[in-house]
Design a protein around this nucleic acid. Structure first.
Length: 84
DNA sequence: GAGCTGACATGTT
DNA sequence: CAACATGCCAGCT
């Protein structure tokens, strides 16, 4: 929260409730820099922490985008969570 | 300390 | 409508 941009992004993504998806732009905005959506993806990419549901972060277009564990898994998880 | 990289977004062709 | 090119920001090497 009071640390670098990456710490805030991770905290925000961790707070994303199940069945809910945020866009990189949304996360960046909550992080304090709506124009840093680029950095958001950069942070999540390096972040291999399973404690962080980075798969709940999608592109503004509504597409899944990418995922360090595999874009396929990301789509699977989102589909599974959306269905409940 | 400077430069390169990238899971994006927006605009134009 | 789809593809290409440019701009933006923070992190990593």
């Amino acid at each position: 929260m009071n640390h670098c941009f990456r710490t805030r992004v991770l905290a925000i993504v961790t707070k994303i409730p199940r069945g809910r998806t945020l866009t990189y732009h949304e996360v960046a905005e909550r992080a304090g820099s709506p124009g840093a959506y680029r950095a958001v993806g950069n942070v999540l990419n390096k972040n291999f922490d399973p404690k962080i549901p980075c798969h709940r972060v999608i592109r503004s277009d509504g597409t899944f985008g990418g995922y360090n564990r595999g874009a396929r898994a990301k789509a699977q998880l989102l589909a599974s969570e959306k269905r409940g």
